[in-house]
Write a protein that binds this DNA or RNA. Sequence first.
RNA 1: GGGCGGGUAGCUCAGCCGGGAGAGCGCCACGCUUACACCGUGGAUGUCACAGGUUCGAACCCUGUCCCGCCUACCA
Length: 885
Amino acid sequence: MAKRELGKAFEPAAAEKRLYEYWLKNNYFHAQDESEAPAFSIVIPPPNVTGMLHMGHALNNTLQDIIIRFKRMQGYNTLWMPGMDHAGIATQNVVEQQLIKEGTSRHELGREKFIARVWEWKEKYGGVIINQLKRLGCSCDWERQRFTMDKGLSNAVREVFVRLYNEGMIYQGDYIVNWCPRCHTAISDLEVEFKQDQSFLWNIRYPFADGQGEIVVATTRPETMLGDTAVAVHPNDERYKDKIGKYVILPLMNKKIPIIADDYVTMDFGSGAVKITPASDPNDFAMAQRHNLEIIAVIDGNGFINENGGVYKGQDRYEARKNVVDDLEKGGYLVGTEPYAHNVGQCYRCKTDIEPMVSKQWFVKIKPLAKQAIAAVVKDKTKIIPKTWEATYFEWMNNIRDWCISRQLWWGHRIPVWYCENCKKVIVATVDPDKCPDCGGTSLKQDEDVLDTWFSSALWPFSTLGWPKETKALKTFYPTSLLITGFDILFFWVARMMMMGLYVMKDVPFKHVYLHALVRDEKGEKMSKSKGNSIDPLLMIDQYGTDAFRFTLAAYTAQGRDVRLSPERIEGYKFFVNKIWNASKLTFTNLEDFDESATLNVADSLPDIWIKARLNRAIEEITLSLDEYRFNDAAAAVYRFIWHELCDWYLELSKPVFYGKGAPEKRQAAQKTLYVVFQTMLQLLHPFMPFLTEELWQVLRGSDKDSIMVSKFPVIKEEWINEAAEKEMEMIMEIITSVRNIRGEMRIAPSQKLNVLISAADEQTSKIIEHGENYILNLANLESMKVEINIIEPKGVATAVIGSTKIFVPLAGIVDISGEKARLEKELAKISKDLEQSSRKLANRDFRAKAAPEIIQKEEDKLKDFQKKFATLENALKKLKGLSA
RNA sequence: GGGCGGGUAGCUCAGCCGGGAGAGCGCCACGCUUACACCGUGGAUGUCACAGGUUCGAACCCUGUCCCGCCUACCA
């Protein structure tokens, strides 16, 4: 085998670039539309076209790439479908800001030109995140990349809209919606964020129209009283029973409004009477519909009082609040003001207070869709992982309200509805009509609104595969196998994909949904730009390399737990990368003269057999963990195998053989083992650390061979299973560790060679230990080792015990024996505690009567062990005291 | 108001279908042994939030309490 040179350290930046290009060039990321191999597919949660890679993306896409690479190596025809979302409000905002800087506006430009500008912006600046995903190592099938505003996806949107409309699932009407006075659009219930606000509760007196007394109402929004059209009380409220149907005078507006009765009113809140403003409150709106109340809007789309607000017209809603309160007070209508904490809805995008407003909007009738989506999860057609999220999913789906899908924006899928200006006919069509089907008129006007961005995202799992065309890709990859996303968009996106997938495709969009947690800072706070605590993933990649970064994310991704990240943690895994790099250097040096094809007649050594048995266990654990999306467990298993088994033990045990201190055939056997184990280790690690493993794989096997990413993921090899060897090795390792312990505790210089006497309980153990003599001599740094059966403890030794095996280290002439006393006493204290606990347990009659027999047996074995150890140590201590006395 | 998750070593967290408290980092001691000081070897460290209960036995199961997150909700 050729000589291989590795530099002093892995250089991520250069290697990452080179290897990613190599993968692309060889088309490894590409999935086949048709294949013999079983399909495995994931659609990416499409990032916003305006987006920059943040930690959430980094985590989300790292996890996807780990699974995709794992499955690809397992031989699946693997598709990772990438793409982006047009992000209506966000993108429109970005371009509008640009226009403002240029001293113009979208209104000056006009709709068509504005949209052209957005496209221009998209081509020029949009989608930087795609290149950032590449730096993360994502193995997406880039040839298939989609954008929600693409022609194909836009067709899908229209097709679904028309279908829903024709089946009576979409309707238009004047309803109260969440209106953002800054974005000038309606938003869905989900897009409203509630924030607690320290405000006041104003108590206002409404006099009866007949002059007989008054009724007091409380409100957090006094300015809305301008639009009050009733006062409501509970029908069973004795205080007001006789007042129902009477009228009060609305202060400031000097208007008669009725007192009505409705169950919605809580009797014991405030005075038990509530003012009703149907145009400014969703509950009041609902009540107005029940009671046929007048609906008077007093606040306009900008958040200003309109012409219905009398003298307050033209005032901003907060200014009007102040003035209304002042005037109420002046007029003697204000009964009192009390501090009050309540929730205020804000626009998720711009944090402006939402103004509930009545306007004409499009809605999707959602209950029938939700019903199917619930059933699919109940029947396990789609599995939500971790399962705890199912409850949340059901809770939301069961209480879902109709989805407002129209947005008063320009950037987005324009609603495919046209109005004939001649005969008022409403035309709903997938292709732009040129004349009215009824009257033939050609003066058609398209609905001004666009659809909620999530409407198109909801179709993502099938629209990206070519639907409504019946493509091969759709047939092969739908339903997709898995969706990986953050729990924060369970409702926004996952739930809606479930509903649309079932409605359109008659099948679930994915079989598994893995919901991961949020990335937080080391204090557990959500990362955000405004808090200034966000960590830039690209900076981390620059500093520590993609592999270390990815591994950190995986290692901290425990189900149902947030990922707390800090640069120090990533640095820790950079050390791991370095460790692997150096182990590779050692490996490659020792494999220089290795001939892969040579046949060997020499048997494997114990470490050879052992490391393969351990490798088997690592394969099993990693595979199982990844199958169950336990990323942290999988990462820990790789880490432990590489560092604590391969590096700490196998490489150390094998050094003498490699350095030629034995027969050449033994060296060849070790080389063969190392060659196999090292390759397998790289394969296991590949999903986590794609770059490092590819680099090493190619150096090890020669770069003319295939990439590691298309090699076969390791499976357990029957012939490697060897429990006996694991036990034997464990014995030897324990002996080495106990001598090291004595050395450390007794402060014996590492350079000081020791002689050791070992007392084995039986012939078999004695053989095992003798078998491992060379390993023990080397790793415990001994001059000599002697094993006998049941020898009497010599004088002047330090003693260690492993079960029935005793290890004696003569200290005469090496170190003052008095230190051993303290060491033994410490050990004795520890063991006597265990001993006491165990014997107490066994002395308990109930324990003997009720515990499982194998547990009792185990406990008895334990006790015997403790007793032996205790006796040995005690004996040693006695001897020591006798000696020094 | 309802729901979910969490409170285990100085820090971040595993362990939780009940039977000898773990990892990583940090800390202490020793060591430049021909892959690695981004390292090696050894060591110290915990009334497993609190209070009850079930059990032969509880970090793990049950009940309650206290904190900390998050989600959800129309009490004006």
